[in-house]
Design a protein around this nucleic acid. Structure first.
Lengths: 168, 168
DNA sequence: TTTGATGCAAAGTTTTTGCATGGTT
DNA sequence: AACCATGCAAAAACTTTGCATCAAA
């Protein structure tokens, strides 16, 4: 699918994610624009994490053009709507992901890949956990280490380094 | 104390933190400079988190002058030495803290204050936790919410906002 | 028609880099 | 004396902003 989003289609859309965004826009009296739907549409198709750069590229690959500022703008909006979260992992540039069920992030410090794992034990632990003089809204657990692919590689070539640091 | 660090004093210093840094520098064949000690010295006196800006300011308040690039340079060095960690909490600029015992970070999304709490249950949980196809090196748990001070304030003046976002 | 959103370019932040100078070894 | 680190300024990377134009309501 590479057709540009049609506003009326989206406005009437039954997809819960689109609906949530529509309600958010309505509540704020904000406009429903093709750009916003194009961006939301692309984000919904992504599993896992992406950078602003990558997102814009994907949107343009879909045959739709949006300016960088509009991408930032909309991403900010989606964060306000609590539909998107921004993560900055050690030494990397900001990445975004849709807010779904809580999960742990495994970040490979060698190749930079990020994997999400659900951990019901941990979720249960956090649900029960109360901090004194602090009211929890949400949390993020980042686990840094080496993924099996990189571990295997380094066994063969001990000095192989893909470099996780995308910034630079 | 506001005397400029003396290199020989530091080189012979018995403080385990200084010793670790010395060993790191030796191992890399790097020089022991007054700037590096001035920075390390200031960092050791800090409890909790600080930004590059704040660190440089504190050092200058100590009566010592270092350029921003040297601060970045040394901070990078301390991270390589696994003595310092960089955190980027949601919507805030990078903050650093000495690596000590693992702890949870409570971040107030209203005022931006960061509090560390030790949580032996969580530590035990993480020590036992193994992830498939992933070798853990270290982890960070960020908990976002509202501190009691801000909760109290907002009860009085529901729209009070200090703004956690230090990046303008 | 009204008013808010877009896109561009320009400015702002934070961080990194290149090179001459200076200090540690 | 050799050579690595510093400091400066300039560049780079990322993000925000101002304003004219465009489009949703």
């Amino acid at each position: 699918m590479k057709t540009n989003p049609n506003i009326d289609d989206f406005a009437a859309c039954n997809n819960p994610v689109v609906r949530k965004f529509n309600e958010f826009l309505d509540a704020r009296g904000m406009r429903k624009t093709t750009e916003r739907y194009a961006i939301l549409n692309r984000i919904m198709a992504i599993n896992g994490h992406f950078t602003i750069e990558e997102l814009q590229q994907m949107i343009e690959e879909d045959g739709f053009r949006v300016s960088r500022s509009t991408v930032y703008n909309t991403v900010e909006l989606l964060m306000d709507a609590k539909m998107l979260r921004r993560h900055v992992f050690e030494g990397m540039q900001a990445q975004y992901e849709r807010i779904t069920v809580p999960h742990t992030h495994l970040i490979c410090t060698t190749c930079g890949k990020v994997k999400e794992v659900r951990d019901t034990n941990f979720a249960a632990f956090m649900n029960a956990r109360r901090f004194t003089a602090f009211n929890t809204d949400h949390y993020s657990l980042y686990v840094y280490g080496t993924c099996s692919t990189c571990a295997r590689k380094s066994k063969r070539t001990p000095h192989a380094k893909d470099d996780a640091k995308s910034k630079k």
